[in-house]
Amino acid sequence: MFEARLLQGGLLKKVLDSIKDIITEGNFDCSPNGLSLQAMDSSHVSLIDILLESEGFEHYRCDRNIPMGLNITNLVKMIKCAGSEDIVTIKCEDKPDNVTFLFESKDNDKISDFEMKTMTIDDEHLLVPDQTYTAVVKMPSAEFQRLCRDMAAIGDTVNISVTKEGVRFSTTGDMGTANITVRPNPSGDQKEEERTEVQITEPVSAGFALRYLNSFTKATPLSPTVTLGMVPNLPIVVEYKIADMGHVRYYLAPKIED
């Protein structure tokens, strides 16, 4: 059986907010290491990779690997019924037809349980290799969110080029062009999460659909910083670390100029 108790139930809401615009269903894999999900959007352009490590839960028990196929839209509806301060317990049997969600208020004066039907999902699982990135950019997540929103107001595709001087985001649309350069500022008085850091072994440049990048920024409440990893001619990875718990990562295939 599987049973996991999470003290910060609000975290589950944030995780679901970060994926609900991209996928409508997914297999949550329960394993002794933790709860994970890998799923592609319907057009197979982007991939979500979530890991919530077992150590991050107050109580975690998983005897064997259990795939838990869930409709994300319905899951969002159920988790919305939890208070953001509630303690959430997720429970299911080894071959589950249902998953139980138990919500306990912080003061222990309200307990709710919800049972949700599971579904069999035939999804493609991709082997994403561990990659050494040619360029890694760490920046405040709110700044990346703002930047993607601003770029999307001008164009559909953003070109991201990373050099040791900084990261340049450029887009072109019917009304004109926009360029925003973010420079590394590691020596200032900023707190670590306010800094922009760039590590590169060689300059990288590629174009990406802003519609997807904008969806990825729905993960902003999960982390004060975001990390972009790029390798020439490979998908970009956009990673939001979840403190003491794991991560939400997005992979997005590049656009190729015709």
Binding site: M40, S43, H44, V45, S46, L47, E124, H125, L126, L127, V128, P129, D156, T157, G207, A209, L234, P235, Y251, A253, P254, K255, I256, E257, D258
Partner: peptide, 14 residues
């Protein structure tokens, strides 16, 4: 002007 690649162009199926 831009052609969108798919992830299966880069990663193998598990």
């Amino acid at each position: 002007r831009f052609f969108q690649n798919h992830l299966s162009d880069y990663y193998m199926q598990d």
